[in-house]
Simulated scan of single mutants.
Amino acid sequence: MTGNNRDRHGVGQKRFWSNASVIAGPHGYTVTLDGKPVRLPGRASLRVISKPLAEALAAEWQAAGADNPAKRFGPDALPLTRIAGAMIERIEPHRDHAVATLAGYGEYDLLCYHTGDDKSAAARENEMWHPWLNWLRERHGIDLHVTTGIMPVVQPAAVKKGFSGLLGEKSDAELAALGVAVPALGSLVLGLAVTEGSLSAQDAVNIASLDERTQMQRWGQDPALLDHVAVVAADVMDAKRFIMLATAQAD
């Protein structure tokens, strides 16, 4: 995603602009670089309805590469733009596909697969996971079946129907945020709880990474696992920030 200078080789880009700003129009707020609209990979303009989100997007572009204009930077420098881009170019024109993909995560939700041969780990999973399965049932009327081990559990037909109906009522911005948080967490239940304001991003990461943290408590810290958890945390926090900005009211 670039201003008007998309990098064709996937190796990042150099800063070529001086000022990122927001221009208000009849269809929302467009982020511009030196007065020209930021263009997404599909050539759509980076335009959103929420002014707070547009201002945050512009701030992201203003900071990108500012420390060293001669150095290339990648998409990681523009996390909110990545989510907005998915919303504009993938979710808005293909909502049904987005809903179906997210609903699929719910059928194989992390919280449904419990440890079967470690009583201590199983007790921690019950303590941390069951409250959110209960939350889903009480808030949305969706009752997930739980199993032990790794063999897939077949969920009732009502589960897929319930998730599809619930997700179909979400806004494009909510679906975009869920599209980042849910794969990162491996859990549609936790992603919904975060985007609906019932669970903090950090608590969701702690719940989703229970097995990894248990493993490190037993065998010692693993740099690869620590890096994985850190990436998950960054993604979920970006998704949470995106939805908060997308639904925030301008001053």
Rank of each mutant, 00 (worst) to 15 (best):
L188T: 05
V232K: 14
L167M: 08
K51G: 00
T32S: 10
L53A: 12
R47G: 01
L46E: 10
P93Q: 06
D117K: 12
R137M: 13
S21V: 08
I142Y: 01
A181K: 03
L33S: 10
W135R: 14
N4H: 13
L167E: 06
A193Y: 00
P183V: 00
A239V: 12
L144Y: 07
G35D: 05
G85W: 02
V153T: 15
H145W: 09
D172H: 11
S209N: 04
V31E: 06
Q155M: 08
L166I: 02
Y113S: 09
P69W: 00
D34R: 08
L110G: 04
A239M: 05
S21P: 02
W135K: 11
P52M: 05
M128H: 15
R139G: 05
A58Y: 01
L192N: 00
S45C: 06
E89K: 01
A59E: 14
L78H: 03
G179Y: 05
S21I: 05
K71I: 07
L80D: 01
V153D: 10
G141S: 03
I49F: 08
H145N: 10
L175W: 03
V22F: 05
S21N: 10
I23N: 12
G162L: 02
D67V: 12
H145S: 14
P183A: 09
L188G: 09
G179K: 02
Q202N: 15
L192Y: 00
V232P: 06
R39T: 11
R137T: 15
E127L: 14
I23Y: 02
R241Y: 05
G165W: 00
A24H: 10
C112W: 00
G168Q: 02
P75A: 11
I49A: 15
G104L: 07
A121W: 11
T32Q: 05
N206G: 06
W219F: 15
M1Q: 10
L178N: 08
E138T: 15
Q62H: 06
T148I: 08
S50M: 07
M1F: 03
F242H: 07
H145T: 13
V38S: 10
R8A: 13
M216N: 03
D203G: 08
